[in-house]
């Protein structure tokens, strides 16, 4: 349902994404992990048709995104990493706008808006201007806008940032339901706990290169062969694969070097 074939994006001499190839099947939630600046957002933007790849192809539900971007966008939903919305529209008006862009029947749009607003507990605020919404509320509206047309394929870039635990849990449940109904979900996240619990498969990208993909169990057996299954968390895996372990020593050094309220000279030093 989602296919990246040797997707590459270069900005001059910098290769942001290098030969990314992956497949996400119907009914699957794919977690896309990586450190900051690894190329997650660039990859998602190429898959969604917001960024032209330097080379390679992105295919969504059998539609080549470069050849038929409008057709591809008709079947997919997208939630960006920052929930920027029209501040002078209300949540209901924004969702109507999205419904009209996608030519949903007005009655269906209205019913769907009611459903989604109730789901995300925004019913009481849906006729307020979005300019007055908090980050988390805007995030919920963006997710609702992506879900409005019941897309077959859903891309979410850091969807739980700014959400309270209750809403984050709700999003996880919604995504699971979509996948169970045969949809494909591609989600990038920093929250490894979410990826571990929610995703059927994960991919780890570093410096633009997909360095590993598979189920958490598969990655665990490949990357940490000596460790018993339940003892190695996805965090351990992530740090092992992305070279994060070297920072642990630095972090422990920094924590022992913290200045006291008396000023830098009065800082207690751990041994």
């Amino acid at each position: 349902m989602i296919e990246a074939i040797n997707l590459t994006k270069r900005y001059g001499s910098l290769t942001a994404v290098d030969n990314l190839s992956l497949v996400v099947k119907p009914g699957e939630i794919f977690g896309f992990l990586g450190p900051n600046g690894a190329g997650k957002t660039t990859s998602i933007k190429m898959l969604v048709g917001l960024l032209s790849p330097t080379s390679g192809r992105a295919v969504v539900d059998g539609i080549d995104v470069a050849e038929d971007p409008v057709g591809a966008k008709r079947v997919l939903g997208y939630v960006p990493d920052t929930p920027e919305v029209y501040e002078r529209l209300t949540a209901r008006e924004l969702l109507r706008f999205v419904g009209d862009l996608r030519r949903l029947p007005p009655v269906e749009t209205e019913n769907r808006i009611e459903e989604l607003m109730a789901l995300f507990e925004l019913t009481d605020r849906q006729d307020e201007l979005l300019g007055g919404y908090s980050h988390g509320m805007r995030q919920k509206v963006c997710i609702a806008a992506a879900l409005l047309a019941r897309p077959k394929v859903l891309f979410l870039d850091e969807p739980t940032v700014g959400l309270d635990p209750r809403s984050a849990r709700l999003v996880k449940d919604v995504l699971r339901t979509i996948a169970d109904d045969g949809g494909a979900v591609f989600v990038s996240t920093h929250v490894l706990e979410i990826a571990e619990r929610m995703c059927d498969r994960v991919g780890i990208i570093q410096n633009g290169v997909l360095i590993a993909q598979g189920t958490v169990a598969e990655l665990r057996s490949k990357a940490l062969p000596g460790v018993e299954g339940a003892d190695a968390s996805l965090e351990d895996l992530f740090l092992k694969l992305t070279g994060g372990e070297e920072y642990r020593e630095l972090i422990s050094h920094l924590s022992s070097d913290r200045p006291s309220s008396e000023g830098p000279s009065g800082g207690a030093r751990a041994g």
């Binding site: 029209y86 002078r88 529209l89 209300t90 209901r92 008006e93 706008f97 009209d100 862009l101 030519r103 949903l104 007005p106 009655v107 209205e110 849906q126 006729d127 201007l129």
Partner: peptide, 30 residues
């Protein structure tokens, strides 16, 4: 204000042209 907004339903012109124009005009009044 909420009640008034909630009443706006029914058939309306759709597609990119009409929905973008309607959105722009709506924000214009505000």
């Amino acid at each position: 204000k909420r009640r008034r907004a909630a009443r706006v339903t029914g058939n309306r012109l759709q597609g990119v042209y009409w929905s973008v124009l309607r959105k722009d005009l709506k924000t214009l009044w505000r």
